[in-house]
């Protein structure tokens, strides 16, 4: 594991989101058991673990995407800035504008590049006029490190971009609503190594503005981009802590077994 940059990183200690005793059932399947996690502000948190361990399920609890699955039932308490996000007074639609999400496979809308990015700001009424909207689109694309590649063809369809560009377009789309937390569900698993490197670099830059939560199958990726790592196994949160600590000196034998390749 020579390519891991297990250097010391600046870590803020204020919690942006806190989860306490979160349980998720899909029908009769108990997918997530009693998870406690603090997502820190302006920090990249990585969720690792073997397939089916519940890491994506937990990620989807953080922006209530599980609400769109009819059989899902979420219990426990998840707070964002001290406000329970499962409180009936919270509109999941508003919540998702503050907690953006990027998916495993790039899913640009069948619209132009401009309209893809402008979609969120338009439906949330974030701009007063066309000039402001243009401004939002431009800054979002710049934040997603895509502006230079697409600035001359903003009206071209977003689906015509390459895989890596599409994924950065999806990041720009999520960034455009000025979220406070960005959730990424295996954002690089459909990308080639070069595109992966670009997205990873981008994640590191985005950390300056908001907290990023990334689910990944690649332990190298977790080690490269994150400051905090949570290891999930069979629906349990096994270990959560500083990334360097998890990878060099895990306290739970299951974590050690996973990162050394013995389970998973």
């Amino acid at each position: 594991m020579n390519d891991m940059r297990l250097t010391e990183r600046v870590v803020t200690e204020t919690a942006k989101m806190t989860a306490r005793g979160v349980q998720v059932h899909y029908g009769t399947n108990h997918a997530l058991k009693d998870v406690d996690v603090d997502i820190l502000d302006k920090t990249v948190t990585a969720f690792i673990g073997p397939s089916g361990c519940g890491k994506s399920t937990f990620l989807r609890c953080l922006n209530r995407m599980n609400d769109t699955v009819a059989s899902a039932r979420v219990t426990g308490r998840i707070e964002m800035d001290g406000q329970d996000i499962y409180d009936p007074r919270v509109d999941p639609v508003q919540l998702r504008a503050k907690v953006g999400m990027v998916f495993q496979k790039p899913n640009p809308f069948p619209k132009s590049i401009y309209d893809n990015v402008a979609y969120g700001p338009k439906i949330h009424g974030l701009s007063r006029n066309k000039a402001e909207l243009d401004e939002i689109v431009e800054t979002s694309l710049k934040k997603a490190a895509l502006w230079n590649e697409v600035k001359d063809r903003l009206t071209a369809p977003g689906t015509g971009l390459s895989g890596g560009q599409q994924q950065r377009l999806c990041i720009a789309r999520a960034v455009a609503t000025s979220p406070e937390v960005l959730l990424m569900d295996e954002p690089c698993s459909a990308l080639d190594p070069i595109a992966t490197a670009q997205v990873e670099e981008l994640i590191d830059e985005l950390r300056a503005q908001f907290s990023v939560v990334i689910v990944t199958h690649s332990m190298q990726q977790a080690a490269r981009v994150s400051q905090r790592t949570a290891f999930f196994h069979l629906g349990h949160l096994v270990e959560y802590g500083e990334t360097g600590h998890i990878f060099t000196n895990p306290s739970d034998p299951r974590t050690e077994a996973y990162i050394t390749g013995r389970i998973g």
Partner: peptide, 9 residues
Amino acid sequence: DGSYAIGAT
């Protein structure tokens, strides 16, 4: 999913 995740109804 992409649309819901941005906060669209």
